[in-house]
Design a protein around this nucleic acid. Sequence first.
DNA 1: TTTTTTTGTTTAAACGATTAAGCAGGTTGC
DNA 2: GCAACCTGCTTAATCGTTTAAACAAAAAAA
Lengths: 345, 345
Amino acid sequence: MKKASLKDIAQQAGVSTALVSYVLNGKEKETRVGEAIAEKIRQIAKELNYQPNHLAKSLRSGKTYTIGLIIADISNPFFANIARVVEDEAKKNGYTVIIGSCDEHAEKSWDLLNVLINRQVDGFIIVSCEGSESQVHYLKERNIPFVLLDRHFPEIQTDFVATNNYKASYDAGVHLIQSGYSKIGIMAYKSNMYHMEERVRGYKHALRDNHIEFHDSWLKEVHFETMDSEVRTAIDEILASGQRVDAMIFATYGLAINALKYINELRLKVPSDLAIVSYGQAEVFDLYYCPITYVQQPLEMLGKTAVEFLLTKLKNPEEGVKQILMEARLIARESSKAKPTAVGR
Amino acid sequence: MKKASLKDIAQQAGVSTALVSYVLNGKEKETRVGEAIAEKIRQIAKELNYQPNHLAKSLRSGKTYTIGLIIADISNPFFANIARVVEDEAKKNGYTVIIGSCDEHAEKSWDLLNVLINRQVDGFIIVSCEGSESQVHYLKERNIPFVLLDRHFPEIQTDFVATNNYKASYDAGVHLIQSGYSKIGIMAYKSNMYHMEERVRGYKHALRDNHIEFHDSWLKEVHFETMDSEVRTAIDEILASGQRVDAMIFATYGLAINALKYINELRLKVPSDLAIVSYGQAEVFDLYYCPITYVQQPLEMLGKTAVEFLLTKLKNPEEGVKQILMEARLIARESSKAKPTAVGR
DNA sequence: TTTTTTTGTTTAAACGATTAAGCAGGTTGC
DNA sequence: GCAACCTGCTTAATCGTTTAAACAAAAAAA
């Protein structure tokens, strides 16, 4: 059973395809189609279960009603959740999303970008990875609409929707300090991505503003690709250091997971041996024997707003640059509970 | 800067678009294009950074090199992992995946199906939900290639790739029994989906084969939509019953998560108060204070095989029906460790 | 020299839609 | 009675490709 096309309907109705198109697109009034023939066309369309061919429509109109979503990894719960929000929000507006995982790899990201551009997506929502500045510039030059999500490049003027990571880390630091911890480490990715730097900067400022001297050994930066092993040595080091930390901030979900596994192996007790605050969001944090304090990013709003920005841009390409930093919320749990032995406050 | 088309290249080279198409598709030999002109065309194509328009190609060829993946929810780690495997495997073969989440809702699933059919996907990989039999029949009638993944309808003859759920549950049951538990409950979705029934059936047979009488109160079926509250009452009941269970099997990840939260609230100790085996797969199971024994489904193989089945079907639509049930592996952990008070063995 | 074959290229239809423009035939206005 | 306007429809171009078929010119075979 071949799919019915406009032509098939036209033939059955004994009219031209133009009329069929008009009627089926609700333009019968403007184009003065006879009421009787219109009804007949609708009838036949229903009988043949006519479904318009999106490819043809898109080729003609230049609009595919498709948006490309480039993220690091769909199997990471943070991105999976974001993706879900984006999918739903897009669908609400008649758009379809194509998701691509680039594994924090600029090259894969380029590939994805090109594949999706060839597929004529109308625009992109992108969680940029390190070294992908050129891709952003390319999109700007080519005048392809896009919105950066979760991460952005401050030196490049673009639309973006992200979290105020500085503030989030600052809050996390202050929270730990107020809970009586004073030797606070942080683990982050080795990266010059702005959002990562901000996460570290916020933490440092929290220390500074509370008159705690920062020690270089407290900052552990690991490579994304070799995270599994590096996290372990990093933990070993940070615990062995002269200034052994009593609390740690993990700048991403992946780091926290790896660290927690190792911490369990070491039989360290959270929070008595080590207090913890992490970025990210997942069931683990609730179900861990000692529920983990975490930085709750406004996932839903991030995703929705990104879609919204992109869609308005698609409607009105001339509109000005839209940028927004959303505030995260620190969800305090057991893993950072006030130190019983705290003397200070 | 408009995108360069075949026509643009043809104009610059002073030839017809046909030649350009031939050269750029590597058909210069068969179609005897002059070597000099061919080189010139390639040169100009590179200069203009020509990227073929996928829409036009697809419209002409009837192939989009796109496959639709319909799952319950991309934010569920099981599906997210599957999706990732499918994405990678598809990309390897030059295909793009469009993912849709239907929330176990037959109606949403229909919507997705139609949207994707209109977008002319070449075929589908579908994790069917309850009540979607008609959709499967529709695809068969319309002769649209598809493979069912993870779930299937035994009464409908289709390609499928799934787990041997009967065996998996049977193994889970036997494992618990051998570990000294004898009052074993199971929580599943209220559903007449085959995979769910098999999970219950395997469990029942494990009891039967080990001369343990099954009690109706040991089987708790909850509705997917109202899972949050129903799981709690189910746990309350199964623990209050005359035949209080000492172990439980959770037939899905979602059920386990909800149950564990409640079990934590109740301050029940796993496994001493209640041993646990669960389906699903996620970091939680590793990091729970008492690592959870779980049924490890061969995610990677499931996804890869589904793509493989679909692609061979796309290449050769006439080929016979392909069905495969893969074996799961029980990963035994603390949550089902041998009962210290066990008398039997 | 004429016919056939080969070579290199163009033409044009097709995929399935949209839409500006054209064209009869009927009404209305003056 | 003739221009102007409506009404209801068709024609044909277009989007960017692919590809069978046609074609002209040159080379080979007769």
